[in-house]
Amino acid sequence: MTNILIADDDSHILQLVNIHLSEAGYKVFQAKDGTEALEILNRQACDLAVVDVMMPFMDGYALIKEIRKKYDIPIILLTAKNQIEDKEEGFRSGTDDYLVKPFEPKELNFRIEALLRRYDKQLDESIIRLGSTTINKKNYEVEVGDRTIILPLKEFELLHFLSSNPMQVFSRDHLIEQIWGMDYEGDERTVDVHVKRLRERFSKFTDDFQIRTVRGVGYLLEARRR
């Protein structure tokens, strides 16, 4: 399911957008200000953010700049203003699109769909998201909420491969071939050791996924359902 973050201090707007986006099949996370929005993003991976300009504690422009520092997601800016200066500031902050209040919920849906399609084309299979966990093969880092974990190379490659194929069982021989190569001279216990290390590392930080043992066959990665 696609997760949408809505940040707006107007409870009526939050309720309206939540109803229409939920009916459209999205899972909506609501924030009443920029600080709360960042807290949600730290614990929950979102696919798109809808951000109001005028909010207490942190306005929409500042929130967008903070999102851009860490998350590569499309952003729609909501505002009651329609001046070119406000649009300019919004785009300079990093928004992808701009919608003036009052707006038709259907138009917001159309803009969300268009942005998600655009970003889907840009996204690389090297980035995998499991709940609040992001496995990024571009920089070989794993992010769990606001924590960044650097793994040894083979542990990372094993986690990335299993995460790319969730709920699919792989034999130890197949994993050795995929991760270590056909010329590897070690034995299949190497896989067991690496799986054990991954379990020990991540069990302390997240339940977004589990690497399960399938007796007599091998291993599979199970992502938590939300």
Score class of each variant (00 low, 15 high):
Gly60Ala: 14
Gly60Trp: 04
Tyr61Ala: 01
Ala62Met: 07
Ala62Pro: 00
Ile64Trp: 00
Ile64Met: 10
Lys65Asp: 03
Lys65Trp: 03
Glu66Trp: 02
Ile67Ala: 03
Arg68Ala: 09
Arg68Met: 08
Lys70Val: 09
Asp72Phe: 14
Asp72Val: 15
Asp72Glu: 15
Ile73Gly: 10
Pro74Asp: 09
Leu78Ile: 08
Leu78His: 03
Thr79Glu: 06
Thr79His: 09
Ala80Phe: 06
Lys81Asn: 06
Gln83Thr: 15
Gln83Ile: 13
Glu85Arg: 12
Glu85Pro: 00
Asp86Thr: 13
Asp86Ala: 09
Lys87Arg: 14
Glu88Tyr: 09
Glu89Thr: 10
Glu89Trp: 04
Glu89Pro: 00
Gly90Thr: 07
Gly90Met: 03
Phe91Thr: 06
Phe91Gln: 07
Arg92Asn: 14
Gly94Thr: 11
Thr95Ser: 08
Asp96Ile: 05
Asp96Phe: 03
Asp96Lys: 04
Asp97Cys: 11
Asp97Ile: 06
Tyr98Gln: 04
Tyr98Gly: 03
Tyr98Cys: 03
Pro102Met: 15
Pro102Ile: 15
Phe103Arg: 05
Phe103Tyr: 07
Glu104Ala: 15
Pro105Trp: 08
Leu108Asp: 10
Leu108Lys: 12
Asn109Ala: 02
Asn109Thr: 02
Phe110Pro: 00
Phe110Trp: 08
Phe110Gln: 11
Phe110Cys: 10
Arg111Gln: 11
Glu113His: 12
Ala114Glu: 04
Ala114Leu: 09
Ala114Gln: 08
Ala114Arg: 12
Arg117Cys: 05
Arg117Lys: 15
Arg118Gln: 08
Tyr119Met: 04
Gln122Ala: 09
Gln122Ile: 09
Gln122His: 05
Leu123Tyr: 06
Leu123Cys: 01
Glu125Asn: 14
Ile128Arg: 05
Arg129Asp: 05
Arg129Leu: 05
Leu130Val: 13
Leu130Met: 13
Gly131Tyr: 02
Gly131Trp: 01
Gly131His: 03
Ser132Thr: 07
Thr133Lys: 03
Thr134Pro: 01
Ile135Asp: 01
Asn136Arg: 03
Lys138Asp: 05
Lys138Ile: 10
Lys138Met: 05
Tyr140Phe: 11
Tyr140Thr: 08
Glu141Pro: 00
Glu141Thr: 15
Val142Ser: 08
Glu143Asn: 13
Val144Ala: 11
Val144Trp: 04
Gly145Cys: 12
Gly145His: 11
Gly145Leu: 12
Gly145Phe: 10
Gly145Pro: 07
Thr148Pro: 00
Ile149Cys: 04
Ile150Trp: 00
Leu151Gly: 09
Pro152Asn: 13
Glu155Leu: 12
Phe156Leu: 11
Glu157His: 12
Glu157Trp: 06
Leu158His: 02
Leu158Asp: 02
Leu159Val: 06
His160Cys: 04
His160Thr: 05
His160Lys: 08
Phe161Arg: 07
Phe161Gln: 07
Leu162Val: 08
Leu162Glu: 03
Ser163Ile: 07
Ser164Lys: 11
Ser164Glu: 08
Asn165Ser: 14
Asn165Pro: 05
Asn165Arg: 13
Asn165Cys: 10
Asn165Tyr: 14
Pro166Lys: 12
Pro166Ser: 14
Val169Gln: 03
Val169Glu: 07
Ser171Gly: 14
Arg172Ile: 05
Asp173Gly: 13
His174Gln: 13
His174Arg: 14
His174Ile: 13
Ile176Trp: 01
Glu177Thr: 13
Gln178Pro: 00
Gln178Gly: 02
Ile179Glu: 01
Ile179Tyr: 02
Gly181Leu: 10
Asp183Trp: 05
